[in-house]
Design a protein around this nucleic acid. Structure first.
Length: 554
DNA sequence: ACATGCGGCCAC
DNA sequence: AAACGTGGCCGCATGT
């Protein structure tokens, strides 16, 4: 095996791409070709080569026109291509993601050798020379060929296409990173930290005055330690079941409000304080890692930092801001999960309300309570209906609802009863979905994505499985739609110089672009998110809100 | 020095 | 008794 460069490498790659089957493209570090540069192997079941991508002109164009390419961890390979070639492939057959789809939430080993072994393939060591590397890639191509019929068998063809199209956009998102104003963040953190210290001083004063002794100037109670705090409160005659903010807030003043405020500031100072700045890269941006099937429902997860749990407070969100001359365009699906529930259940009242463009929470409230409701008229009834709507998606019962809307159990039961009388298809659908899923052994989304359930014999285990069975199809279908949108938008942005996605949060997609391109990107987001929704929801319209802003806002 | 579990809390 | 789904991450306590 030789290292191919120039036109020879390109010709060899072309030859393999012309063979039947999905070609695998893997990368390994290659010191000789300039440190971080990778060598690339292409393989089908019949042949394999190793080439130097940086010294192979025309390779970028060839990859961009080839679809899909296979890899064990496609997002990682795509990122190497972005670094070395400046572009990648549009679609990827990822062995790892395919295994996760087939596993449907069941625990599974995902290393290349683990996966290969399940298909009776023994992989060569990719770092043991060019020959071994090529054979390694060839082995992966064999595994890939064996996975395809299993996808078909399990009805996972559509989800696998969705995942194939989401790899490149997520790699690009990680590659470009999200713009971030670290100086602004730092100033915010200093102000928060100052107030936290101030509130802590006052609180310790209260504890001292109430007889909590402080030895030699040591703090009378460690406010950051839940156990110590609970014990100190018990000694003061305020026993609490837990140390949650809501529990602490209910204590008599001044202790209650002060403790609640302290917890709030503590959370902000810890999770969204100076530690967050360790994630800022040399380019001043945040390059998070997205896990493509991060949740068993098919949702993404995000880490280092988790850009999906940034506090919504404006001062924090304003730190996520586009550089001068550029802007963010933010698209999000409006009440996406309720539209999915409407589609899946076929409830005529839900469908009609969405078709008319109504505010569904208000519609539900006015139907259930028999009074006119809008965001301004009887808004408290709208809030209650909203809580029920959200609760249903989570498989909530009367007890949970009672807590959520702060009514007693009787009232909550009454509310649910009226709800299901008003929308009979919703209750029937949820019950049927849970029953069938437990019978079948898995829940599934509208595209066929699966989550296997393991309900034990006891009541609570069965109840938990039923709630998952009700929630997963809704949450997972929403994830399916967003992933389709990522792929569609990625395709459109190829023709938009300087425009790229920078974040996605379940039902939201954020693009950064030149200010001059904002109107065009605005249209692209609206069109493609809408079209993605329409691929999956056939009878209920999807609604997309798009905003253009220098900083991240809704 | 690292790993793990827990209580708590941020997001959708 | 629990009672509302999916994550990541913080500090603390405990274990190796």
């Amino acid at each position: 095996m030789e290292l191919l460069r120039g036109d020879g490498g390109l010709a060899a790659a072309r030859a393999i791409f012309a063979e039947p089957g999905i070609p695998v493209l893997e990368v390994v570090p290659h010191a000789r070709a300039g440190g971080a540069l990778a060598a690339v192997a292409l393989a089908s079941a019949a042949s394999a080569i190793v080439l130097d991508p940086a010294a192979t002109p025309g390779l970028a164009a060839l990859l961009a026109s080839t679809s899909p390419l296979g890899a064990h961890d496609a997002k990682t390979v795509e990122r190497v291509l972005l670094r070395t070639l400046g572009s990648g492939a549009p679609r990827w057959a990822c062995l790892r993601l395919t295994e996760m789809l087939l596993a449907g939430g069941r625990p599974v080993e995902l290393g290349p050798a683990d996966i290969a072994a399940r298909y009776g393939v023994e992989l060569a060591d990719p770092s043991a020379g060019l020959d071994a590397f090529a054979q390694h890639a060839r082995g992966l191509a064999q595994v890939l060929a064996a996975q395809v019929p299993l996808l078909k068998r399990d009805g996972l063809t559509w989800p696998s296409r969705i995942e194939a199209g989401a790899v490149a956009p997520l790699a690009a998102m990680e590659h470009h990173g999200m713009a971030f104003d670290a100086e602004r963040w730092k100033a915010l953190d200093i102000a928060t930290e100052r107030e936290r210290v101030d509130v802590r001083r006052q609180l310790l004063g209260v504890f001292s005055a109430r007889g909590e002794r402080d030895l030699l100037g040591a703090a009378p109670v460690d406010l950051d330690n839940d156990h110590a705090l609970k014990q100190a409160l018990a000694r003061l005659g305020h026993p609490v079941a837990d140390a949650r903010r809501a529990t602490l807030a209910a204590l008599p003043p001044p202790l209650g409000p002060m403790l609640a405020r302290y917890r709030e500031l503590q959370k902000l100072a810890n999770a969204y304080g100076e530690s967050f700045l360790t994630h800022v890269s040399a380019d001043g941006r945040l390059h998070a890692t997205f896990e493509q099937i991060g949740a068993s429902t098919g949702r993404l997860s995000c880490r280092e930092p988790n850009l999906q749990s940034i506090v919504k407070d404006a001062p924090y969100r304003e730190c996520f801001r586009a550089p001068p001359g550029r802007t963010l365009v933010i698209g999000d699906y409006a009440t996406c999960e309720l539209r999915i529930l409407a589609e899946m259940s076929g409830d005529p009242v839900f469908a009609e309300a969405f078709a008319r463009g109504e505010d569904l929470h208000s519609t539900v409230a006015s139907r259930v309570f028999g009074k006119p409701v809008s965001k301004t008229q009887n808004p408290e009834l709208r809030e209650r209906a909203k809580a029920v709507n959200f609760g249903l998606v989570y498989g909530m019962g009367a007890g949970g609802l009672a807590r959520a809307v702060d009514v007693d159990l009787r009232q909550a039961e009454d509310l649910l009863r009226r709800y299901f009388e008003t929308f009979p298809r919703i209750g029937a659908f949820l019950a049927r979905t849970a029953h069938e899923a437990l019978e079948r052994g898995f829940a599934r989304t509208l595209t066929g994505r699966r989550l296997y359930l393991d309900a034990g014999p006891d009541r609570s285990s069965r109840g938990a499985a039923e709630r998952v069975a009700k929630n997963m199809p809704i949450q997972g279908t929403s994830a399916d739609i967003t992933k389709i949108a990522l792929s569609r938008i990625h395709g459109r942005l190829a023709a938009e110089p300087g425009a790229f996605m920078v974040n996605t949060v379940h039902d939201e997609i954020v693009v950064e672009c030149d200010e001059a391109r904002a109107a065009s990107i605005h249209e692209t987001l609206a069109t493609e998110m809408q079209a993605a929704g329409a691929e999956v929801l056939r009878s209920v319209p999807v609604a997309v809100d798009v905003a253009t802003s220098r900083f991240w806002r809704k």
